[in-house]
């Protein structure tokens, strides 16, 4: 698909399997094209989802809405399961509709040691340092086992 920008970037030349420069079919203009990615799954952590996979994102959505539509299917982890009435109250606040979703996992704290507005607003620095240490030591699976106790 054609995109704006990218001129003057060495990235375009180094990844021909991802970037190609083409002549516009409508004029003599040259256009940078990128390969469209079709993810097998979009993995999203949200604040609210119902049992069918209708999901609301509170605060910044980043690119989650786009990714949900680009992917073949969505897997949701959610701070809490809510009633479908919550979606019906204001349908346009539903960021991901159920038919795009394959799985809903109720997982409070699912973005830790990171942040999930408005549930937890700062990084858990102790756990983050433990993660950085685990990466160096090659012990992330052990770190994971500790973080996941009772949650699998």
């Amino acid at each position: 698909m054609p995109v704006g920008g990218m001129w003057g970037s060495d990235l375009v030349d180094i990844r021909p399997e991802f970037f190609q420069v083409m002549k516009s079919p409508f004029s003599e203009e040259k256009v940078v094209c990128v390969k469209a990615l079709v993810p097998d799954y979009a993995i999203l952590h949200v604040q609210e989802a119902d049992i069918y996979g209708n999901a609301r994102i509170l605060g910044p959505s980043y690119q989650d809405v786009l990714m949900a539509r680009a992917a073949k299917k969505v897997i949701l982890t959610t701070e809490r399961i809510v009633g479908t009435y919550r979606m019906q109250e204001e349908p346009k606040l539903t960021a991901v509709p159920h038919m795009l979703v394959e799985a809903v996992v109720e997982l409070p704290g699912g973005a830790k040691p990171g942040i999930c507005y408005p549930e937890y607003l700062t990084v858990d620095w102790d756990d983050h340092k433990a993660y950085q240490k685990a990466v160096k030591a090659g012990e992330v699976p052990q770190f994971a086992a500790k973080m996941l106790e009772g949650r699998l």
């Binding site: 704006g4 920008g5 605060g59 980043y62 942040i115 607003l121």
Partner: peptide, 29 residues
């Protein structure tokens, strides 16, 4: 309250939402 510029601090009290994909399109046009 911290250096991250992705938090609710630059969201709360906004007059509209305008995501990164919209920002890229806005600038590209």
């Amino acid at each position: 309250y911290f250096a991250s510029t992705l938090s609710e601090n630059t969201y709360i009290g906004s007059v509209a939402t305008f995501g990164l994909d919209e920002i890229f399109d806005l600038f590209a046009s």
